[in-house]
Design a protein around this nucleic acid. Sequence first.
RNA 1: GGAGGCAUAGCUCAGUCGGUUAGAGCGCUCGCUUCACAUGCGAGAGGUCGUAGGUUCGAAUCCUACUGUCUCUACCA
Length: 870
Amino acid sequence: MIDKTYQPSSFERRLYKQWMERGYFTPSVHSDAPPFSMVTPPPNITGQLHLGHGLDNAIQDTLIRFKRMQGYNTLWLPGTDHASIATEVKIVEALKKEGVDKRDLGREGFLERAWQWKEQYGGRIVEQLKSLGSSCDWTRLAFTMDENCSKAVRKAFVRMYKDGLIYRGDRIINWCPQCKTALSDAEVEYEERDGHFWHYGYTTPDGKTTVTFATTRPETMLGDTAVAVNPNDARYTHLVGKTVVVPFVNREIPVIADEYVDMEFGTGVVKITPAHDPNDFEVGRRHNLPVIRVMNDDGTMNENAGEFAGMDRYEARKAIVARLQEMGVLQKVEPHKHNVGSCYRCHTTVEPIVSKQWFVKMEPLAKPAIQAVKSGEIKFHPERFEKTYLNWMENIRDWCISRQLWWGHRIPVWYCDDCGAEICEETDPTVCPNCGGKHIRQDEDVLDTWFSSALWPFSTLGYCSNSDDFKTFFPTSVLSCGYDIIFFWVARMIFSSLYNTGKAPFKDVLMHGIVRDEQGRKMSKSLGNGVDPVEFIDRYGADTLRFALINGVANGSDIRFSQDKIDGTRNFMNKVWNASRFVLMNCEGKTLKDISAVKLSLADKWILTKLNDVIRQVTELLDKFELGMASQCMYDFVWSEFCDWYIELTKPALYGSDDKARIDTLSVLAYVLDKILKLLHPFAPFITEEIYQGMPVHSETVMTERYPEYDGKYFFADDCKLVEELKELIAKIRNIRSEYGVAPSKRIRAYVLAFDNRITECDGYIAKLCGLEETVYAPAPKGEKTVKAVCSAAACEVPLGDLVDKDKEIERINKELENVTGEIARANGKLGNRGFLAKAPANLVEAEKAKLAKYEDLRKQLQARLDELS
RNA sequence: GGAGGCAUAGCUCAGUCGGUUAGAGCGCUCGCUUCACAUGCGAGAGGUCGUAGGUUCGAAUCCUACUGUCUCUACCA
């Protein structure tokens, strides 16, 4: 027997430990069953569990449990990401507290510390994930820097290098002066900020002509190597080819003509700083301009900055503006809003800087990746994200993959100091294969974290060794993650997998949104509005968390996580618990029958039919990845059908004197509950297992039980319809009681005139659910003061003596009549429409006719009642 | 600049292939400690589905425009 109150903390840990110990999460590679596999988006080892992980895991675990119960050989592979920048920053900070600079330790020493850190804290997030109930196969836990993954990184890099898809070159990249590394375009976040437009000009050496322009970053002027105008701009044609002088550095630079300059914008003159602006860099290339860097890696001005050398970039900006003003060169300052890029890790403003970095040539990789989605080989759910993906892929630029960090996969390229050769092989060279020289040294940089994440679906499965896992589980079935990492991760996995394995890494991409707070704001540390899932689970249980995140949410849409939602979900779990307790309490000590041996009551037939309906719906929805709707179906079935009606309808039999009927009813109750637990298990694994273990008949675990399937033996359309009519009748009587304020405890009499004779067989149900002491299946005797209501299967009258208020009655009937008349008009309108009759499907026309007939009957009844009253 | 989402009850949101008397939860009103559950039960009120056109026998649903709103993306100095 289960506990009296629902206390998830009393069993969730215990059950999870049991599942793990018994190896339920681990699939077999030798199974004949069809495979179903997923890999998790690996959380950063520096990460703390947040609701995003909660959502991500809830979705994937629901899917994997569903598939497992359907008999698939399921693998859900977990792992963690080394998170190059994030981890290095964290360790550098820790060292700083000890007064140590990472350079003091040297590369080796630093890495030793980093691995230590990883061993100590890297598993924390894994333990937190377990509290969500995730049925990942922890025996296969992967890490982006473990052997499998590192081998795959090396293999992929070398192959791409040899194919000419990886190159090294001087390009403008985004530089983070705080992390002191290059970043990819995807790693820069743009934000609109208030800035200034400083207007000033450069003058020709003879001091006669000044060309004026505006800039938002005056400090870059120290690196200016030209001033550009549009070739068609008549205002400046005479100046093209002349030179002007950059103050402070006294550099004579040419005035050039380039299409890039927009004549309409500002003065139509642009100062060109090839070393610090992507567009200027391109202009510089076209005109063979010198590239002069004026900044150091830490954002201070370098020796090329003359008198400003050593200053921080913003300090230098101020100083330059002040000096320009002093010199009387500054013409005006305008406020200006512009987008400023910042580092996605530390939020420092990034600096576009020319730098020698490694890049992946994207165009050849993007083509097949675009094709895979366009052809439908890979499908996004919801579909609209395909546009987002394609839009990005079609406009993609080369990917900067080198990072000036130590923690990560070191770039497997060696340089020979003797002959200058560049060596890139799968095994580490000891001498230069070109000249045999021993003076070789490895590139200092590491790879972008996302380079290894991009290989995740196959690297983790042992792609390099063509392992059994790889053969069995690759390509994976579904990839689920938030839409915020489509570019970082999903897109890169697709092209990496197509390139390396020749196959798409997965067939379906299931996107979810972001978890927001009650007011729709992103949860963040600085706002302090985050919910700690660990704490939450202690309080409400993992099932409530998971269900609250999934229930009724459409794929890809953001979620507002509110206390209301939590309460509602917790209440639902409590409902499941108590309904189960009702069944189990009544079953105690009884020997139940298989339902094939049960004489089914009307209520039994109804609930079994409804059960079949819900099985079909939930399965269909899960097959379409509509988890939110599937859980909603379960919610409605359990609460509104099973609890509100079926359990109530079983009470006459349970509390009656017929022992045989009682056993029969209990057998059906237990049968339906068993199915409910199984249907609900993927959504709420803990509560369902705990209750399941208390069932009169149960196996070792519900999680490997077969997911319920539609059973045509228990589908009774006619009986089901009758019960729906019965519910309507019961609602009418209850309504009268309520409207007339009859105390719920008061037993009253009702007259029921059944249009459908089978209603008379429902005596026990009506009496119990309406609190009647007697039901008379005949019209009320003449002269008795009653309140009357009509529904499809019957008319009912409740004698209320002097309570009956004639005017109120007339009003009530009139209101109903109005409603029914409206419906008749609507149905008539449809049926009177030739187009409808000719073109609408026959079943709809029939249904409309049936409705019309029903409403006309009702109208007659209501009219008769009205006549009676007046 | 480009792309996309959203706009449905007081609030938060479902609504799949166009056909339901437009749904849920919360909130609200009334009544109830009825032997699974007051984390509950019963009864109710509340919506011309953003606006204007169009397609269709039929539109919350499809198309066009507009208005409002949010997000992504680009980065005109």
